[in-house]
Simulated scan of single mutants.
Amino acid sequence: MKVLLVDDHMIIRQSLLYILQSQFPPVLCFEARTGEECTTMLKKENFDLLILDLTLPDTDGIALTEWIMQRNPHQKILFFSTSPTEVFAKRLYQMGIMGYINKQAPISEISNALYAIIRKGEKYVNEEFKAMLTQSDEPEHDIAPLERLSKRELSIAQLLANGKSIEAIAATLNVETTTIRTHKARIFQKLEITSFPEFLQKARQYKLI
């Protein structure tokens, strides 16, 4: 089995490497620090499983997942991230990922997720996300504002919240700056805000950062 670990923190990659090699032998692990390194390796190699961080130095997990799934709709992906489940997990599961684990989860939960995906070929859905699914029928006016954003808008909102400029986001997503400005305007409209300080306040309130 071949696994690609994508995270810009060496300690995270090494921790996952230890868990995989000690609990799921034989496994061959590769490492990438950025989205660019990840896509470069995927163009050269096939992997049974990708373990991705949601926030990378040069891209975000949603945009990277879109690229991966367009290239290989059957690619197995497990997200291992500090970003809150309630903001991102539902979108990512809809895109076809196998699981979403918070980096603060105990080793036992990480092992359970890996066992479900690697040994059983099943998606892993933890109790937190199961509880979220039972609340999916709530009225539209009760939905958190971030739920109203499209996948691309959520990606851009995350990058903006983490200090990326319009120009940097355009370069990351390979689009024109005018496109990013249009998305930003729509984000502000959907969040019912008019200024960037208000946006940052909303981002913190709904755990986007």
Rank of each mutant, 00 (worst) to 15 (best):
M1L: 14
M1K: 15
K2P: 00
L4W: 09
L5I: 14
D8H: 05
D8I: 02
M10F: 04
I12K: 08
L16Q: 00
L17R: 05
S22L: 12
F24Q: 04
L28S: 09
G35Q: 09
C38H: 06
T40R: 12
M41S: 01
K43V: 05
K44N: 07
N46A: 13
N46Q: 13
F47I: 05
D48C: 04
L50Q: 06
L50N: 11
L52E: 10
L52A: 02
T55S: 11
T59W: 04
D60Q: 12
G61D: 00
R71K: 14
N72S: 12
Q75H: 08
L78K: 09
L78D: 12
S81P: 08
T82G: 07
P84V: 02
T85K: 13
V87G: 05
V87T: 15
V87F: 06
L92Q: 03
I97F: 04
M98H: 11
Y100C: 10
Y100V: 02
N102R: 09
S111W: 06
S111D: 05
N112L: 10
K120H: 09
G121D: 01
G121Y: 04
N126Y: 07
K130L: 14
T134A: 09
S136P: 09
D137P: 04
E138M: 14
E138Y: 10
E138K: 13
E138Q: 13
I143L: 14
E147A: 02
L149F: 10
K151E: 08
E153F: 08
L154I: 12
L154W: 10
L154D: 01
S155Y: 07
I166Q: 04
A168R: 13
L173T: 00
N174W: 07
T178C: 00
T178F: 02
I180W: 04
T182H: 14
T182G: 12
H183F: 10
F188S: 00
Q189H: 02
Q189A: 05
F199E: 14
F199T: 05
K202N: 03
A203Q: 10
Y206E: 12
I209M: 12
